[in-house]
Nucleic acid binder design. Structure first.
Lengths: 201, 201
DNA sequence: ATGATTGTTCGAATTCAATTCGGGTTTTCA
DNA sequence: TGAAAACCCGAATTGAATTCGAACAATCAT
């Protein structure tokens, strides 16, 4: 973003543009969405768009950032609750949270996510990973037996990537052989199995 | 590809263009690589490039296809050997095969792969998944106890995605906390653990 | 061997989206 | 109330992708 809005009218403008972009990408796909599309949909001119964003990629990045912010906030808020549950449920709950979130606003977010995922999962994924590490840490404090897991950081990283990519592919093109429920259940099982296997004895 | 070459001189041309593209992308990245770049590097004009490929994306796709072909062929050739090993070693061997393959030709392939991965993992990944399913099938014949695994297809799918994405992320930006060796070992362990956990008793 | 036919190559010209820019409009505030 | 600062506009510029028609080269039938 090349411009930090000063007046209140433009506070909303950024928001409007992002909504328009979400809308446009959901409808036309990222490739076919032009700056004109976005501007039109937002009811402004391209010039104005460039007043708030340095380029088209910047718009998409801001949008991703916004959505990630939201997700991260929600997960973080859940940490105190999650910490009380067993690991399988933790995975399960987070996945449900995420998948439900995607379906609000009539699937626009989902469509956008699909496009993002197909292209690149930028650095935003790193921020999600970060909360998960945070959760892992707090969780370990509540469940000291986890201290015995050999190389917990590695295990957590591998599992985070595993879960993430399975979700991505499921969104990208859902395998007819694995329903969403099976997916969520399977991933939970996998996490539990791997972690247990890394416990001594 | 919009044109099937007839004369022998042009047999090589496609190959030349693909090499040029690999080179260009490895050097400049996908975003900064233009059709001119590729044409120049291949010592031809843009017109000629479009004689063999319908558009730029087509060039990249053909390149991916070629590389995937190679990988799939190698894996398939290994199946008879892999079938004799224990599961952990199977994962280990395949990962080593893949990672080594990427480093031949001075890392050009690796650089290209990085770019592909950052953007989208097209349908090519599906073809790799297919060989893995094939392997899974043949392997099960040799190790009938696997028949007892509940929903083996689901398990295989989840594990394939898990392993794949961990490798992708490792290539994309290698975590300083997990070395390549740890990664390979960890993924093997994870697969074994999950599969075992799905065995009755 | 030679003209016809088909295949190949070229690069200037076209097209289209991204981005810039200079001039008007609105808001803020002294 | 009149600048100054913020905003907004859309025509003009830029640059990469793609097209096109005119050569050039190989092949083939006579």
């Amino acid at each position: 973003m090349r411009h930090i809005p000063k007046q209140q009218r433009s506070q909303k403008m950024v928001e409007t543009i992002l909504e328009a972009a979400l809308d446009a990408v959901a409808r036309y796909g990222m490739d076919n969405t032009t700056t004109r599309h976005i501007a039109e949909r937002a009811g402004i001119s391209v010039g104005t768009l460039y007043h708030y964003f340095s380029d088209k990629a910047d718009v998409y990045e801001a949008l991703q950032r916004t959505l990630t912010d939201d997700l991260v906030t929600r997960i973080r808020a859940l940490i105190p609750l999650l910490v009380q549950k067993e690991i399988g449920s933790v995975i399960h709950d987070i996945l449900c949270l995420f998948l439900n979130e995607l379906e609000t606003d009539g699937g626009k977010q989902l469509a956008f996510m699909r496009n993002i995922m197909q292209r690149g999962f930028g650095q935003e994924i790193g921020r999600i990973e970060q909360v998960m590490m945070e959760l892992s840490l707090v969780y370990t404090v509540q469940h000291p037996e986890l201290t015995q897991v050999k190389d917990l950081t590695k295990v957590t990283t591998l599992l985070f990537n595993s879960v993430t990519f399975n979700i991505i592919r499921h969104l990208d093109d859902p395998s007819p052989y694995v329903t969403r429920e099976q997916l969520v259940e399977g991933l939970s099982d996998m996490c539990v199995a791997y972690i247990n296997s890394q416990m001594p004895q």
